[in-house]
């Protein structure tokens, strides 16, 4: 990771940062006021990650940074120089869906689908944390993702099913 001291004046258009996005190493020019969400969607064309509230209140923009789920809308991309970023586009392996993606289909865990990429990334983070085990715990630990269609019970079922299988990364 680049730890060199950086200092740029306000009229600098872009700073070049390095990110690994879904396994691909990228060198990217970013304006320092660019959020990771806007970088992914507008510069990288990765529109799976959704802009809902853009204020950290809905969770639609959730991605995994160095394996941990965060709100990409409140993350300045420049501050994550060197990080590993995983988005919903990086969950499946080729045509093989991530077990959570399959479980969401099996449990009808969405209606309009807008919150789903954030729900999936959040659930991947939840599994990696290894803290939530019971239904109450899954509900609490998925509370950062709002679903306006109200698919919560099925989302919880889907997460619990994969949780029960263990061994999922």
């Amino acid at each position: 990771m680049d730890t060199a001291t950086l200092d740029t004046p306000a009229d600098t258009y872009a700073i070049t940062i390095g990110l690994t996005i879904n396994g691909q190493q990228r060198r990217l020019p970013v304006e320092p006021w660019t959020t990771l969400l806007d970088l992914l969607r507008e510069q990288e064309g990765l529109t799976g990650t959704k802009k809902g509230c853009d204020h950290g209140q809905c969770g639609a923009c959730t991605v995994l940074i160095d394996g941990k789920r965060v709100n990409s809308c409140l993350t300045l991309a420049v501050s994550r120089d060197g990080a590993d970023v995983r988005t919903v586009e990086g969950l499946a392996e080729g045509d093989r869906l991530h077990p959570l993606q399959q479980a969401f289909i099996d449990h009808d865990a969405f209606q309009c689908g807008y919150c789903t990429p954030g729900q999936l990334c959040s659930a991947v983070g939840l599994l990696a944390e290894g803290k939530a085990k019971s239904r109450d715990e899954v509900r609490e630990m998925m509370s950062g993702n709002i679903c306006r269609c109200g698919a919560y019970t099925n989302i919880t079922d889907a997460v619990l099913e994969v949780l029960g299988e263990g061994s999922v990364k």
């Binding site: 001291t5 200092d7 306000a10 006021w33």
Partner: peptide
């Protein structure tokens, strides 16, 4: 969001 200059110091004294 307004534009701003950006610094990324690596030690507390510089910050």
């Amino acid at each position: 969001m307004n534009r701003f200059s950006y610094a990324r110091p690596s030690d507390v004294a510089d910050a």
